[in-house]
Amino acid sequence: MIINNVKLVLDDEVVAGSLEVADGKIRSFADTPSRQPGALDGDGGWLLPGLVELHTDNLDKFFTPRPKVDWPAHSAMSSHDALMVASGITTVLDAVALGDVRDGGDRLENLDKMIGAIEHSQRLGVNRADHRLHLRCELPHHTTLPLFQQLVGRAGVSLVSLMDHSPGQRQFASIEKYREYYQGKYQLSAEQMAHYEEEQLRLAERWSHPNRQAIAADCRARGITLASHDDATADHVQESHDLGSVIAEFPTTLEAAQASRRHGLQVLMGAPNIVRGGSHSGNVAAHRLAQTGLLDILSSDYYPASLLDAAFRIADDPESGWRLPQAIRLVTRNPARAINLTDRGELAEGRRADLVLAHRIDGQIRVGNVWRQGRQVF
Rank of each mutant, 00 (worst) to 15 (best):
H55N: 15
T64P: 00
G44V: 04
K61T: 05
E53R: 05
D43G: 12
D12S: 11
S28T: 12
A39H: 02
D11E: 15
D60K: 02
L40R: 13
G50R: 07
W46H: 10
L40V: 13
Q36Y: 00
G42Q: 13
A39N: 05
R27P: 00
D57V: 02
L10N: 08
P33R: 14
P65N: 07
F62N: 08
A30R: 10
G24Q: 10
R66C: 01
N58H: 12
V14W: 03
K68P: 00
F29Q: 09
P33L: 15
W46V: 08
P33T: 09
G45D: 12
D43L: 13
S18H: 09
N58E: 08
N58V: 00
D70P: 00
T56H: 03
L10T: 06
S34D: 08
D31N: 14
K25T: 10
D12W: 00
T64H: 03
A30S: 14
V14M: 07
R27V: 06
S34A: 11
T56S: 14
E20L: 07
I26S: 11
D60H: 01
E53V: 06
P37V: 11
D41H: 02
V14C: 08
V15W: 02
D31A: 14
V21S: 11
P67E: 03
G38R: 09
R27M: 12
G42K: 12
V52G: 02
D57K: 06
L54W: 09
L51K: 11
Q36L: 14
E20H: 11
W71N: 10
K68H: 13
S34G: 02
W46Y: 15
D57I: 01
A22M: 09
E53K: 06
L54K: 13
L10M: 08
N58A: 11
G17K: 07
V21G: 09
D23V: 02
D12Q: 10
K61H: 07
F29K: 08
L10R: 08
L40W: 12
E20S: 14
E20M: 07
D11N: 11
G45M: 12
L59G: 01
K25G: 01
R35V: 10
D43Y: 00
S28K: 13
G45V: 09
E53W: 06
D12L: 01
A16W: 01
A30Q: 11
V52Y: 03
P67L: 02
F62E: 12
V15N: 04
A39K: 03
T32K: 15
L51R: 11
E13G: 00
